[in-house]
């Protein structure tokens, strides 16, 4: 199991500035941050290399694990996502109708606003955060326990690659599951958006609403949406597996590792989202 050094200070919440050596403290923080970034990059490359090199190896063991992950991410979270889709549609339409009605443009811009807000931005990011909260945290706890209880070493002892067994199925499952959940969420939010517009007696026919949606969507939206959501899934899986597995853990360190994994995942997803916004604006 390749081990990557994670400084204890890096990304730790609740830190305090020592008065005596602020420059030293800041330096340690920067070095710690860089070490985690380097470790995450190395871990991602190792995972990709193992996934490609061992593609088709031990499919009888790995395929059920991938299916289990897809079920855990993409199917078991479905009821919660239906609720989230209803809420998202309500939030967006409620606010939009309230503002746009003042300038008399609510009916015309409803579809465009849903595409900009739900399809391009909130849908993927909201999905990523929900997946992180429900499955990403469980990943850190499960892998941290496996690490603390010596399961990684016991896999290595029987010649099973821990990255192949623990990480690759989670990455594949998380990527497929996140893409699927985003599609469910967006479809649900678009549907519930019309429902809320109807409840608010907005004079928009379903055909007009859906034609507005179709008019606002471009081929680039579909490509970038798929890329963005798959990348969110990849990032969450890599960061949570990294903090759970990449270095020896004691049981009492698992909760801290979970908190750090959530913090790093949120930051990484938001930064990636910013890159995609730039891509939308420039392409």
């Amino acid at each position: 199991m390749p081990e990557v050094e994670i400084p204890a200070s890096a990304g730790a919440p609740g830190w305090a500035l020592p008065g005596s050596a602020p420059a030293g403290w800041a330096g340690r923080r920067v070095i710690g941050f860089c070490a985690v970034v380097r470790g995450l990059g190395a871990f991602a490359l190792i995972t990709l290399a193992v996934g490609l090199r061992k593609f088709g190896v031990a499919t009888g063991v790995i395929r059920p694990l991938v299916e289990q992950e897809i079920f855990r991410v993409g199917i078991r979270l479905l009821p919660m996502f239906l609720f989230a889709a209803l809420a998202l549609g309500f939030l967006v339409i409620g606010q939009t109708v309230a503002v746009l009605s003042r300038v008399g443009a609510a009916s015309e811009l409803l579809g465009s606003i849903m595409v900009i807000v739900v399809v391009r931005e909130l849908g993927p990011l909201f999905t990523a955060f929900l997946v992180l909260g429900r499955v990403g945290t469980a990943n850190v706890v499960e892998l941290g326990m496996a690490r603390a209880l010596g399961e990684v070493e016991s896999l290595e002892a029987v010649g099973v690659d821990p990255v192949h067994y623990f990480v690759v199925p989670r990455v594949v499952g998380m990527m497929i599951g996140t893409v699927s959940l985003t599609v469910y969420l967006i479809l649900g939010a678009l549907g519930s958006g019309y429902l809320w517009a109807f409840v608010q007696e907005l004079p928009v026919q379903p055909a007009d609403y859906f034609s507005q949606l179709a008019g606002a969507l471009t081929a680039l939206d579909f490509v970038l949406l798929a890329l963005k959501t798959a990348s969110f899934g990849f990032i969450i899986a890599i960061v949570t597996c990294f903090f759970g597995l990449a270095q020896p853990l004691q049981l009492e360190q698992i909760s801290r590792a979970t908190v750090r994994a959530v913090g790093w995942s949120v930051v990484a997803c938001v930064l990636l989202d910013a890159l995609f916004i730039i891509a939308y604006l420039t392409l």
Binding site: M145, E153, S154, L155, V158
Partner: peptide, 11 residues
């Protein structure tokens, strides 16, 4: 082959 103390089975 290495047998760990306690077996160290996958939970």
């Amino acid at each position: 082959g290495l047998v760990f103390a306690g077996g160290q089975l996958l939970h």
